[in-house]
Amino acid sequence: KEQQNAFYEILHLPNLTEEQRNGFIQSLKDDPSVSKEILAEAKKLNDAQA
């Protein structure tokens, strides 16, 4: 469930490039146990690119 939530949120971050988004999603698939950390990174990058 946590992985699904992170997946959904990353898909809807407006400021990520397609490449960045795909990278985060691939990381989620590779290691779902760190989905919280991956989501935090994605949000940080999204904010930095706002």
Rank of each mutant, 00 (worst) to 15 (best):
E37T: 12
L39G: 02
P32M: 13
S33R: 13
I10S: 01
D47F: 10
L28M: 13
E9N: 12
P14N: 11
E9K: 09
A48M: 13
F7W: 15
N5F: 05
A42C: 02
N5M: 15
L28T: 03
A48Y: 13
E41W: 08
N22F: 10
Q20H: 01
N15A: 07
E2H: 04
A40S: 11
K44E: 08
A40M: 08
P14C: 04
K1C: 08
E37S: 08
T17F: 06
K1T: 15
I25V: 11
K36C: 04
N46A: 09
K1H: 15
Q49D: 04
L11Q: 09
I38H: 02
E41R: 07
K43N: 12
E9G: 06
D47L: 09
L45C: 13
P32R: 06
E2W: 04
Q3C: 02
R21K: 09
I25R: 04
F7N: 05
N46H: 04
L39V: 11
K1I: 05
Q4S: 11
Q20M: 04
K1D: 15
A40P: 02
L13K: 01
S35P: 06
N22V: 12
A40F: 11
T17L: 06
L28W: 05
L28A: 05
A50N: 14
V34L: 10
S27R: 14
D31T: 09
Q26R: 01
G23Q: 04
Q3F: 15
K36A: 14
I10L: 07
Q26C: 05
D47Y: 07
T17N: 09
N15I: 02
L39R: 04
E9C: 06
D47M: 11
K44H: 12
A40T: 07
E9S: 09
A6E: 08
S33A: 06
R21L: 08
E2F: 03
S27C: 04
L16K: 00
Q20Y: 01
D31E: 13
I10W: 02
N22G: 09
G23V: 13
E18M: 10
E19G: 02
K44M: 15
K43C: 02
Y8E: 14
F7E: 10
S27P: 02
Y8I: 06
A42D: 00
E41Q: 10
H12Y: 10
H12L: 11
E9V: 13
A6T: 11
R21H: 02
P14H: 06
A6K: 05
E18I: 11
Q26T: 08
E18K: 09
A40H: 13
F24C: 01
Y8S: 04
F7M: 15
P32Y: 07
D47N: 06
A6F: 06
A40Q: 14
Q3A: 01
D30F: 10
A42M: 02
K44W: 08
Q49M: 09
Q4A: 11
Q3V: 03
V34F: 13
F24G: 00
K44P: 01
G23P: 02
R21C: 04
T17K: 05
S27I: 10
N5P: 06
Y8M: 14
R21Y: 05
E9W: 08
T17P: 01
N5T: 11
D30N: 05
F24W: 03
N5Q: 14
S33L: 13
I10H: 00
F7Y: 14
V34D: 12
E18C: 05
I10K: 01
F7D: 06
D31W: 12
N22W: 11
Q49I: 14
T17Q: 05
E37R: 06
E41P: 00
D31Y: 15
L16M: 03
Q20S: 03
E19M: 11
I25C: 03
K1V: 15
I25M: 09
N46Q: 03
R21P: 00
E41S: 14
K1A: 15
K29S: 05
A40W: 11
N5V: 15
K43D: 03
Q20V: 03
G23F: 09
H12C: 04
F24R: 00
P32C: 04
R21V: 06
K43L: 10
L39M: 15
E41I: 13
V34W: 14
D47K: 11
N15S: 07
N22K: 15
T17S: 04
L45M: 08
D30H: 14
P32S: 04
K29T: 14
S33K: 12
L16P: 00
L13M: 15
T17D: 08
I10D: 01
G23Y: 13
K43M: 11
A50T: 14
A6H: 06
E18Y: 06
F24P: 00
S33P: 07
D30M: 12
S35C: 03
N22I: 11
V34P: 05
S27H: 13
K29Q: 10
L11N: 10
E37F: 13
L13D: 01
A40D: 14
F7V: 12
E18L: 08
R21D: 00
L11F: 07
N15Q: 02
A40Y: 07
L16R: 00
L45E: 08
N22P: 00
A6P: 06
L11D: 07
L28S: 02
L28F: 06
E37G: 10
D31V: 09
L28Q: 01
E2C: 03
L45G: 02
K44Q: 10
A6Y: 05
E19I: 03
Q20F: 02
L13E: 00
Q49H: 07
A50H: 13
S35Y: 15
A42Q: 00
A42W: 01
Q26W: 08
A42Y: 01
L39S: 05
K29R: 13
V34C: 05
D31A: 12
L45S: 03
G23S: 08
H12V: 11
L13C: 02
N22D: 11
E41A: 12
E18P: 10
L45F: 07
K36I: 07
Q26M: 09
E37K: 09
A42G: 02
N22Y: 14
A40I: 10
E37A: 07
H12I: 07
E18F: 09
K1G: 15
I25K: 05
N15Y: 08
A48V: 13
N15R: 04
A6S: 14
E9A: 04
K43H: 14
F7C: 04
F24A: 03
D47E: 14
D30T: 14
R21F: 04
L11E: 13
A6D: 04
Q49F: 08
K43I: 07
L16D: 00
A40R: 15
F7Q: 15
L45Y: 07
E37P: 06
K29M: 12
P14W: 07
S33E: 06
K36L: 13
I38P: 00
K44C: 03
N5A: 15
N15L: 07
H12M: 10
P32F: 09
A40G: 09
A6L: 13
S27V: 11
Q20D: 05
E19R: 09
Q26A: 12
E18S: 10
D31F: 10
Q3H: 10
Y8C: 02
A40V: 12
Q26L: 11
N5G: 08
A6I: 04
S35K: 06
R21S: 03
A42I: 02
S27D: 11
E2Q: 03
G23E: 05
N22C: 04
E41K: 08
